[in-house]
């Protein structure tokens, strides 16, 4: 091949995201470029640990990555607005919102160091615990819960849990060894990272939170491509591919939940948490606290959040 792209991500090679999304993307690029671009995928963080993947792309240790914005605290605060409670109910809808915010230029500055291809979110995140059944916020007391990003940390803190920062791939070992009592993750990840084998209880709080993802490329690597190959990459970027990633997440969420059901786990569903007096103050407090904090730093968080709500009610339903 004329160009080899080293594509690094942290999902294990057996997961749906690797096989149905990134491998599909790679094959499609290879076909569309008539074999002139070869994509070598490096799953399971073999080129850089999960939090270091973005820097690895800047330094061209990897040519491109699929990673989580929030694993580096403080770099993508406006994009992470999409993670706030109440916004995301499916991956399709969350991805539509995030990609639109980027396309409209509201969050694009945060990605200046790399060449983003597409952004997406996972489906709604839930709480999964080893043994403690969570029915109300007071059940969180003293539990150590793995959380993906700062947004979710303040949410869990508000609920009375002790949040522990940890990339998803480390969660299995941590939960197995008792470092944590539970995790905040979508159903898809419970399957991808084998956590359904450890958790016995799951609590679905509608629209609790979501997580922002990106697929992004080293700027120089993109710039060095000849125009016709740039066009191939461009055709594998944007809203269309964002939606395809979301579709895989949504499909996998259903599969992950089915496994837990089949294993006879406890599944608690709290409908209308946004209006439930036990949950509402925490959810709203998290949103307000996050937005106020960013505004104090001079970032237009409220404008971005307002636009996200508009999109959620409008074309991203």
């Amino acid at each position: 091949a004329e160009v080899t792209l080293r594509f690094s991500h942290f999902w294990p090679a057996v997961t749906g995201m690797h096989k149905e999304m990134f491998q599909v993307w790679a094959d499609s690029v290879q076909t569309a470029s008539q074999g002139r671009i070869e994509v070598e995928i490096y799953p399971s963080s073999t080129l850089a640990k999960a939090p270091a993947q973005y820097d690895a792309v800047i330094d061209r240790i990897a040519d491109m990555t699929a990673t989580v914005q929030g694993y580096t605290a403080g770099r993508f605060p406006l994009s992470q607005v999409v993670e706030l409670p109440g916004l995301v109910h499916t991956a399709a809808q969350g991805s539509c919102i995030l990609q639109a915010l980027y396309d409209e230029g509201l969050v694009a500055d945060e990605y200046a160091e790399t060449h983003p291809l597409f952004l997406f979110t996972h489906g709604p995140g839930h709480i999964h615990t080893r043994d403690t059944v969570i029915r109300a916020p007071e059940d969180f007391a003293g539990l150590r819960i793995r959380r993906p990003t700062l947004v979710v940390a303040s949410l869990l803190e508000g609920l009375g849990a002790q949040p522990v920062a940890m990339p998803a791939p480390q969660s299995f070992q941590a939960m197995e060894r008792g470092v944590i009592d539970g995790v905040a993750l979508p159903w898809e990840a419970m399957e991808s990272f084998r956590l359904n084998e450890l958790a016995g209880s799951h609590t679905e709080v509608g629209g609790l939170y979501s997580l922002a993802f990106m697929v992004t490329m080293n700027k120089d690597v993109y710039a060095a491509l000849p125009d016709d190959l740039k066009a191939v990459i461009d055709a594998h970027s944007g809203a269309d591919w964002s939606a395809r990633a979301a579709a895989v997440f949504d499909r996998r969420d259903i599969a992950g939940r089915a496994t837990a059901e089949k294993a006879g786990h406890t599944i608690v569903t709290i409908d209308g948490a946004a209006n439930d007096p036990a949950w509402k103050p925490v959810l709203e407090g998290t949103t307000e606290g996050y937005l106020a904090h960013l505004e104090a730093d001079g970032k237009p968080a409220r404008a971005v959040h307002a636009r996200a709500l508009e999109l959620a009610a409008g074309r991203c339903q």
Partner: peptide, 10 residues
């Protein structure tokens, strides 16, 4: 520049 912090203790 990015005011980055550690994840748990900030």
């Amino acid at each position: 520049r990015a005011q980055e912090t550690t994840q748990d203790l900030l």
